[in-house]
């Protein structure tokens, strides 16, 4: 089963997105800030990371800066989900090589699961 790590400090987003992804057959684990996210990435070796940008302790972009230097884990695809829609934030994401940028409030859970499927394929494949 493919494993997805959601790093987001918003409990509602955690709850709903993990629900939708679990329904789609993925294993979902979660972290509520970038620091916890780094620990979980190291420990759990997820197939994909869903990453929020504004979080306490360690934000999304700082998380990516650290992840990129990590030779073992910098190949893990990252999908940004944030409520920032400004081009500066989107460009920052692109510069860090992320696989997608989803504005949470503009897209449905279905779009998120579809994006996950298109990046790592359906679970069990």
């Amino acid at each position: 089963m493919k494993k997805i790590l959601i790093i987001d400090d918003d409990p509602t987003f955690q709850e709903t997105t993990s629900g939708a992804l679990k329904n789609a057959g993925y294993e979902v684990i979660s972290a509520s800030d970038g620091q916890e996210g780094l620990v979980m990435t190291e420990k759990e070796q997820p197939n994909l990371i869903i990453l929020d940008l504004m979080m306490p302790k360690l934000g999304g972009i700082d998380f990516l800066n650290i992840l990129q230097k990590d030779r073992e884990n910098n190949k893990i695809p990252v999908l940004i989900t944030s409520n920032f829609s400004g081009s500066d934030k989107v460009n920052a994401g692109i510069e860090h090589g992320v696989r997608g940028y989803i504005v949470k409030s503009d897209e449905s859970l279905k779009t998120i699961t579809n994006a996950v499927e298109s990046i790592i394929g359906k679970t069990g494949e």
């Binding site: 509602t12 939708a20 409520n83 279905k110």
Partner: peptide, 24 residues
Amino acid sequence: TSMVVHELRTPLSGINKISELLRQ
């Protein structure tokens, strides 16, 4: 402005996602 929009979207998109789950 960008922060205010972000802070307003976060709970709103949460409510939106919950209703999506409930409907599904």
